[in-house]
Design a protein around this nucleic acid. Sequence first.
DNA 1: AGCAATTGTTTCGCACCAAAAGTAAGTCCC
DNA 2: GGGACTTACTTTTGGTGCGAAACAATTGCT
Lengths: 386, 386
Amino acid sequence: MTEGTSGWLPLSPGERSVAIEVLVHGPLSRTELARRLGLSAGSLTRLTKPLIESGLLVEVTEAGAPAEARQGRPSQPLDVVADSGFFLGFKITEDAVYGVVTTLRSHIVTRHDRALTTHDPAEVADVLAGMTAELAQGHPRLAGIGIGVGGFVQDRAVVGESPFLLWRDVPLAELVEERTGLPVVVENDVAALVEAETWFGAGRGLDRFVVLTIGAGLGYGLVLGGRRVPFAEEDRGFGKHWIVDSHGPLTPDGRRGSAVSLLTIPSIRYQILAATGEDRTYEEILARAAAGDPMPARVVGEAARALGTLVAQISNFVMPQKILLAGEGVGLMDVAGKTVEETVRALRHPLAAPVGLETKVSDFHDWARGAAVLAIKVLVLGSAEA
Amino acid sequence: MTEGTSGWLPLSPGERSVAIEVLVHGPLSRTELARRLGLSAGSLTRLTKPLIESGLLVEVTEAGAPAEARQGRPSQPLDVVADSGFFLGFKITEDAVYGVVTTLRSHIVTRHDRALTTHDPAEVADVLAGMTAELAQGHPRLAGIGIGVGGFVQDRAVVGESPFLLWRDVPLAELVEERTGLPVVVENDVAALVEAETWFGAGRGLDRFVVLTIGAGLGYGLVLGGRRVPFAEEDRGFGKHWIVDSHGPLTPDGRRGSAVSLLTIPSIRYQILAATGEDRTYEEILARAAAGDPMPARVVGEAARALGTLVAQISNFVMPQKILLAGEGVGLMDVAGKTVEETVRALRHPLAAPVGLETKVSDFHDWARGAAVLAIKVLVLGSAEA
DNA sequence: AGCAATTGTTTCGCACCAAAAGTAAGTCCC
DNA sequence: GGGACTTACTTTTGGTGCGAAACAATTGCT
């Protein structure tokens, strides 16, 4: 199962930086790489040679678009062989496991989900191993597995605490490794998504970047200096009960105007249920709000103002170049995006640089992809960062 | 003027890290340094030798307190020779220049101030050069000058924009260098103070740390991963008009509840003047508020709630281990510290880790000291970071 | 005195890199 | 169409910085 692909591991620091640069920023010539990495031309020859020999990189002929044919010897761009290795990403939720197979470039090749009927760690590991076996059939060159879990994860291996699975100190990486024989990386789901977006997504190349996810709960990830800032408390969920409006409506958790009670999907549905007695889906509520139905419009408007307040506060204190709104609950932006933007404007200095807001509706497969990207990051690049 | 002291420049990266560690964390043995820096024992012998020969470090005999006399060969702690070089720090305000002489350890040796009657760049540089000449009499071994200015500073050399001096693109470092013959580092005053506190002050050794200054204006500095996060907008003052309470009182700048209009000394004095017709000093207002005089108590309480809101929002999104409140306007904490803490508690999750609040009343000499520390950082350690 | 523990030093070899010189592969222009 | 030029890459060489391991120094303990 682990045939062949183990050839390009491990990488030296120099090789790693070359691999990352090509992986993230597409085909690049050696000279261009030397410029970006601050190395000499000679070093690039030395560093790229083993990467090409191991099959991770290839010289592409760029027959399609030579762009501007300049003077001198033509450059010889290098690119990663996207299918030189495949990675598995899993996202574990309360009642299902979502799995994807991705290339080195994090493109999703296959999806595969399975319901979860138990939370017993060994049985969950069995489920993951079973899904791995099935997915391995179509893609023999699996190089590693990434698993995203809501909760606090230690050392990218042990689930220290996961409230919804009722887990404490479960060595999930070990359990799955011994069943599959593949290297496994476990990480908090939000952290994995943030890493993925920083590398390949909305935060690519940015210095200051924030990810805010809205779904069953809220997620918050901060990237500064191009690196994710680790917050232990955050993964435990303590940090998220932001009070955005102490004059706001009283909501289920008994605290006025907390972001969780105003913004998350269950809270919005609960508010409608409590007010009208009708149990509507999130999409139905958004549609009615858009249509002008007063009650849903009020709840959605309140949520939009809460979101705008959060965005403004984040902008004020972190000053990101971009904020990515992700998760299943960002449909809000389609209906009430204008309210969000107005709220942000009202709470910021008129001369402050406008914050870039990007919305990305994501389903559970995107979370799984995030976990796969983390596996790529750790396994291909040798767990550079803690 | 620049005799002798130029011997220990420049340092290699390894030597630099050793110098910083000893400078910041006091006397350390070679073995201890090897442990902290992740280097081998042999490397420490190699790295410390030139530092000792140049006179920057010495082996101290620690005759005073051998603490626990353990088994084995006794360690040989190294310490910086604090008076192997002196540094000048200046803080330029609208109507005065404040100067200090500090040791390598940033202890203030001498203070010297002078009124500023002009804002012409050349004349200001003349004043700085004159003060330098006077201070150099008592301390011949001056190694460099640091200058803190409110406003936007480029490349630690050019004042790009300073509203209160009405400067644009003034090459202040160059002007002072050619008058004194000493190397000069110019930086935004808040940035310099943050660097100083991160190195030698409240933020020593912390990973996540925030500085909030209250005075004629507000200042905000963020340290993550032990490094200050640079915000270009921040230095321009755009980021600080945080709206902390959109239901708050209307204040001079025409926007409801901005932090500047609720918290800064001029704003508080203005509020009292507008309400009572009496022009009181900041200290008088605080004293009256403490005594229970309703009008000052209301204004001060409002300020305390605004400060608490800021602290809570910063805690929520940056999760610092400590927030330092500095500047001339933190006397507020003595009178209404309880209100601040209550506000913070009300706006955070009950299970969230409590944020460490530290208050430090600072005068303009502390700002000047911050500039001196930056000069130490850049000049001794070779401008490691941008 | 002998042994263990701990710190610091010396020596050696390896990994990595920059500089410089050399080679390859194209364009430009008379 | 053929030399001159330009740019990309490779090879060679030398230097730097580091770790590993052997060695020396200095103490406490028995």
